[in-house]
Simulated assay, not measured.
Amino acid sequence: MPDATDADGLTVGQVSARLDVTVRALHHWDEIGLARPSLRTAAGYRLYTAGDLERLHRIVVYRELGLGLDGIRAVLDDSTADVPGALRAQRTQVAERIDRLRQLSVGLDRMIDAHERGLLLTIEQQAAVFGPQWNPDWPAQARQRYGDTTQWRQYAERSASRGPEEWQAVTDAVAGLDRALGEAMDAGVTPGSPEANRLVERHREVFASYFPLTRQMQVCLGRMYEADPAFAAHYDGIRAGLATWFRRIIDASARSHSIDPDTATWQ
């Protein structure tokens, strides 16, 4: 390496500032032989010449285009390298990344909407999926009431990936459970029996479409199903007294898992 006076060339720090490249990157490129400073001062400090700076400019350009260091070395040093081909390949990769980022952006928008609105269906879609008794104001009311809870966040995460078909499957599962509850009550299934306990487990599985449901939380829901006028009307509309019977089989199942229904809390 030729010697130079301190007035010749540019130091690593100066090149770093001029090209907006970190000193660490310049040292690395020097170590791997991609861009070495051509001069050295009498004191042993390395300096970059105008030719070195031009090479660094080209490295920065190709790096910003996404080429790896090996690819950049080939473009700069291999006279047989197919530069247009390498750039076309890089363009294809960039286009694929752009497509992935667009998809990510759409997913983020849906996740934001799900956290803010809960249900990502139009009013017409809601009526088609949930039936004429559905009130499109319910999601907003639920957001206002539960929006700061962990369960709302879990519900939103599930809702963000669902369209009408997925929600129809959830609705069908709920309707199937409601029918099974009514039929079991008609058949005289008693709380604590294996048949009743299977229905309680089925309820937890179906409810997991909204958010994970612990047994203690399920007890709390059972109380609400019986005490809340809207829920009680729903279940008693299927079979008279079903809301109370449903609460009783939930409580019995909880006791079999060492949970006292009288003291269960939402946890």
Rank of each mutant, 00 (worst) to 15 (best):
A208L: 07
A187G: 08
H234K: 11
R158Q: 15
D228W: 11
D228C: 06
R153T: 14
D178G: 12
A180C: 13
A230I: 14
H234E: 13
T171A: 15
S209L: 05
E205S: 13
S161W: 14
D178P: 12
V189C: 04
T214A: 03
Q216K: 10
Y235I: 02
G163M: 00
T244S: 15
R158H: 07
E166N: 06
A227K: 10
L177M: 11
P229F: 10
Y210Q: 05
F207V: 08
V219R: 06
A160L: 06
A230M: 09
Q218F: 02
A232P: 07
S161A: 12
V174L: 14
W245G: 02
H203R: 13
G237A: 04
R162I: 03
V219F: 01
M217R: 06
V200A: 00
M224F: 12
D236I: 03
G222K: 02
F246V: 14
L242H: 03
R179H: 05
Q216E: 15
E157N: 13
D186R: 11
S193C: 01
S193R: 01
R153C: 11
E166D: 10
P194E: 09
V189Y: 05
L221Q: 07
Y235Q: 04
L181Y: 01
F207R: 04
T214N: 03
R198F: 03
S161L: 14
L177I: 10
V200M: 01
A169H: 13
F231C: 15
D236L: 08
V174H: 10
A187N: 11
W245M: 05
H203D: 06
L199P: 02
E195A: 06
I238H: 01
D172S: 09
Y235L: 07
F246S: 06
Q218D: 04
R215S: 03
R239V: 10
A240H: 14
A243R: 09
A232I: 05
A240Y: 13
S193T: 04
E166G: 10
R239Q: 08
G188K: 01
R223T: 07
T171D: 15
F211A: 08
E205I: 15
